[in-house]
Design a protein around this nucleic acid. Structure first.
Lengths: 345, 345
DNA sequence: TTGAAAGCGCTAACAC
DNA sequence: GTGTTAGCGCTTTCAA
């Protein structure tokens, strides 16, 4: 279908090597020659065949991004950032959806698709610390999230404990003492839920507020429906609370909906804070206070680190853990003055 | 790094052709031979090099999906469906974000990245009917959306006019007569806004309700903030209305937020219906009535049609327009009985 | 500064 | 039923 380098060389009256030199911006090409080649490229609408280049170079210019599902806002926004950053660097991104289940997450490493990406950015939600060994794959891999620490790969994440402490402290500062938690995972130590719950407890402790287990709602999944269900259960127990720390925004939105159905006013009766700073948090009613986990910084760092590994600059550099900066975002759900809706982007 | 076919052939004690036969499930291979090969593959952890295969076959097994941005829920959900369908068929998907601007949309066809996808599913939002000629590219292309009709490619879309008429009729059936519209595009005939406004007018006409231009709010972009701003302007004009047809869900959510800020009750004072059936519409307060545009059907059809073109079955088959089925989804915002939050998926 | 030619890993004629 | 081999389009060593 398309023209090849040979065609370009023929039309330009030079050898194929010269065409290659021009395309790869090899410096020592006489300007006149370069012009002839450029013109031939234009004329033939030539575009290099990436398969051939990939075969020759052993690199394809494509990286993989494995996330549970784009349907989940957090991962859609993460993918958005990763694709933007990759594009700046001339890379394509193939997205793999793992559905968040263990089998598929494991398959991601052995699946056929991967023999052709140059590297993979992987955000597991089912694999855990015990699976650390399976991360020892034969290609560049950057790990995201907080399921596995100290593994054999570079790792980009954020200070979950500190961020959760900041969220809780914010509630405490506004005078709340009975702070419910939505989305805890029973017995989890590492992992988003475990770490964030730890931050919550640290904040309570620092403020001298006793930990009350009846305020903790457990739910495995972190969808809106789980936030709603948890909140319904919490209300049904009759336990009193004046604030909710939802371990992510999606849970918070589900929980807010139930609180409002129950006739409670946010933040007057109950203040709510989430975690993730989804776009959606700026438009809910009330707007949702939350933690901005530095998602964009996570994405750009992950791409940069992966590329360095692929390029093999300092192949012996030790595997590193990178921590993104987080920020507390105060909105109406914790009492920030009602503002007109923030302008998008 | 990885083992090649030669390695597998050597270990299995057969020729490279036999290995190829096994991998490509060529039927006439003796079971014993196949087993030996499979074992060698296992032993060497062999995976075929997709670049080489792509070079040889002229196909890479990767398709492109060009959308404005994954940050926009509609496109994230669309991408999710496309990736799922592609995966079923053994294809990878590279996502290209166009930001929805004209330059980038045009670049999508000429950009370097595309020389290696086997085909492209393209959802333009800036290109229009006048650009129909640029769609005549040299590779399989499936067009989505309602910006361009009758072009030189297969096209998967839905019956926007009918769907918008159904949405409006639903409001009329519930006794509403003063129905505001949010998200109209001035002077647009084709395009989502133009077509949906037409459906709205058709419904009014059929019901004998006069069209009132003061009820139409215009906004170029379709983000939450635009829905909010439009609704604020509408309220400021003092015009009376008892229902809102937002031309997509995102606008509807922004508009609902402003209506509620203004102390109005949905649906008692004002009923609201959107368009798209985003996941989010099931969890807003109140839940949002909307049109399910058959997004999943659109995605699966697009992938199927693209694959047929790539495979070249019936290369002379005329370019076809495929229409997905739509459904009216009645929820609380137009008076459906309050249900506990629908279970996710 | 440019040309000739080898070879990346794979598939598919074509032999046997 | 299985082996031999050409060549897909590109980069790059080596010569000129």
């Amino acid at each position: 279908m398309g023209a090849t380098m040979h065609d370009v060389a023929r039309v330009a009256g030079v050898s194929i090597k010269t065409v290659s030199n021009v395309i790869n911006e090899y410096p020592h090409v006489r300007p006149g020659t370069r012009d002839k080649v450029m013109q031939a490229i234009e004329e033939l609408d030539y575009r290099p065949n990436l398969s051939a280049r990939g075969l020759r170079l052993g690199r394809t210019g494509i990286i993989g991004l494995a996330v549970p599902a784009l349907r989940e806002n957090y991962f859609a926004e993460l993918a958005d950032s990763v694709i933007r950053e990759a594009e700046k660097r001339g890379l394509g991104v193939v997205i793999e959806q793992t559905s968040g289940d263990r089998e598929t997450e494991l398959l991601t490493f052995s699946g056929g698709r991967l023999r052709f990406v140059d590297g993979l950015i992987f955000s597991p939600v089912s694999l855990g610390q015990a699976d650390v060994d399976v991360l020892d794959v034969g290609f560049p891999l950057v790990l995201l999230g907080e399921r596995i620490f100290g593994g054999p790969t570079d790792h980009v994440t954020m200070v979950n404990v500190d961020a959760a402490r900041a969220a809780t402290e914010h509630l405490i500062r506004s005078g709340r003492k009975r702070i419910a938690v939505v989305g805890a995972h029973d017995g989890e130590v590492i992992g988003s839920a475990g770490l964030r719950l730890r931050g919550y407890r640290e904040a309570l402790e620092a403020a001298g507020i006793p930990f009350d287990p009846t305020l903790i709602a457990y739910t495995t999944l972190w969808h809106r429906s789980n936030g709603a269900t948890s909140m319904r259960q919490l209300l049904a127990t009759g336990v009193k609370f004046d604030a909710v720390f939802a371990l992510n925004d999606t849970l918070a939105l589900g929980a807010m909906r139930v609180l409002q159905e129950a006739g409670l006013t946010i933040p007057t009766d109950v203040a709510v804070i989430g975690f993730d700073d989804l776009d959606e948090a700026r438009y809910s009613l009330p707007t949702l206070s939350t933690i901005d986990p530095g998602r964009n910084e996570i994405a750009t760092t992950a791409v940069r680190v992966l590329l360095d590994r692929i390029a093999g600059v300092e192949p012996t550099a030790p595997m590193t853990e990178y921590l993104a900066e987080f920020h507390l975002v105060e909105r109406e759900s914790t009492g920030a003055r009602r503002t007109s809706i923030e302008t998008i982007r």
